[in-house]
Design a protein around this nucleic acid. Structure first.
Lengths: 215, 215
DNA sequence: TTCCCTTGTGGACAGCGTACACATCACGCA
DNA sequence: TGCGTGATGTGTACGCTGTCCACAAGGGAA
């Protein structure tokens, strides 16, 4: 089983690690889960991977590059959480209701991720990004789609179902995303911190109503 | 003029600084302006205030307490920017139009601040907060009102003008705030980074339309 | 088999936050 | 007026961090 080329973090028998990059990202994700982006510290990451600090420099230019990789992975987790919300609301046959529910599911998954994994959520969005990279495969979840793409898919469904007027479709991602992203931030770090589940669920529902009405 | 009790940063003639706390916050704000919250580094802050690193501990429990104070000041600047947007759109006499414009002005000021002072914007929201402290005077601008309170004032105007149904008024702050805050984040750090002014102005307008329609 | 290039190690350095002991002085009380 | 005392600033030190450099190990290609 353990052929040295697939050595796990603890107990490597060869000189080479055989997957250090992945191990470092994994350790970084664990640190991010516990303490957010600031906790993704190069030395501790390498320590957890059972390797000397400098080994990281064979795979990442610097600490920031490591954090980027961790952040991308976190975005993938966010995508997974949203896809899970899709699965929780299967098709009903009514195209309009389905499309509406799909956009809602994006919002619910997004906020759910922020609440369940605040450290990963913060890390996912702690790193500057731009539109060109928003669909980069390294940010995708298990089904190969990034959170940004999932918003787009939901909006396309609304368009095809005739709910969203065609002239409103372009760039609608920004509006939908900004809205749920803002709520996510407010819930974990902002003034909405510490509100109980019911209050937050209520705020989420009203926010999603607003998007539905106003998009 | 320089009586030792109001010593400015450079060239203190007494043993006591005579306003070190303020000087530290000021230096911290400058650092935040240049490099965001991460740049607010205790040692460099004290250096700029012309004082030894440990002197800061007479006024702040630790670096985090200093960052909090800087962050509060930044929130005050955000409030100032929003108030400036109020001033730029004086009353027309039409209560409905005025109230609508007021909420728009909050959004415009918010996004304006994010774009003009990204470092201060990031710093303002880099620190965990909660609802109880959202109206704390230390976060207020020159006119004594915090950004959170300004959103509330705009919504109250919408209520009184009959635009916002009374049953939708409670907690509407969260919706309005989350929306513009999300756009702000996306614009400075997120996928909307690097878009030109026209694109961002367009996105802002559409976002505010959405709030107006959907609140 | 030999060589080389990739990967990991060890040591060093500057900068950071911060604890502890000490210096300095403004002010209130005798 | 002089003195003590508490608030404020200094100096030194420690462990942590990111990162540079020279070196070691060893798998794969020639």
């Amino acid at each position: 089983m353990d052929d040295g080329a697939t050595a796990t973090a603890r107990g490597r028998d060869t000189y080479r690690h055989g997957g250090l990059r992945e191990a470092l990202v994994e350790a970084g994700v664990e640190l991010a889960r516990e303490g957010g982006p600031a906790a993704v510290v190069l030395r501790e990451t390498t320590r957890r991977a059972g390797v000397s600090p400098n080994a990281a420099y064979r795979h990442f230019a610097d600490r920031d590059a490591l954090l980027h990789a961790v952040s991308d992975t976190c975005l993938g987790f966010a995508a997974d959480r949203i896809e899970a919300e899709f699965d929780a609301h299967p098709s009903t046959g009514d195209d309009v209701a389905d499309a509406r529910m799909m956009l809602r599911a994006v919002g619910l998954g997004y906020i759910g991720f922020a609440r369940e994994e605040p450290g990963l959520f913060r890390t996912a969005f702690s790193v500057p990004d731009n539109l060109q990279r928003a669909a980069d495969p390294s940010k995708a979840g298990r089904r190969g789609r990034t959170p940004f793409q999932l918003v787009g898919i939901a909006l396309d469904a609304l368009l095809e179902a005739g709910v969203l007027p065609p002239d409103r479709r372009p760039n609608a991602e920004f509006l939908a995303w900004a809205t749920v992203h803002g709520l996510g931030m407010l819930v974990i770090d902002g003034p909405l911190r510490g509100l109980d589940d019911r209050m937050i669920a209520f705020a989420t529902e009203r926010l999603l109503d607003m998007v539905d009405r106003g998009l």
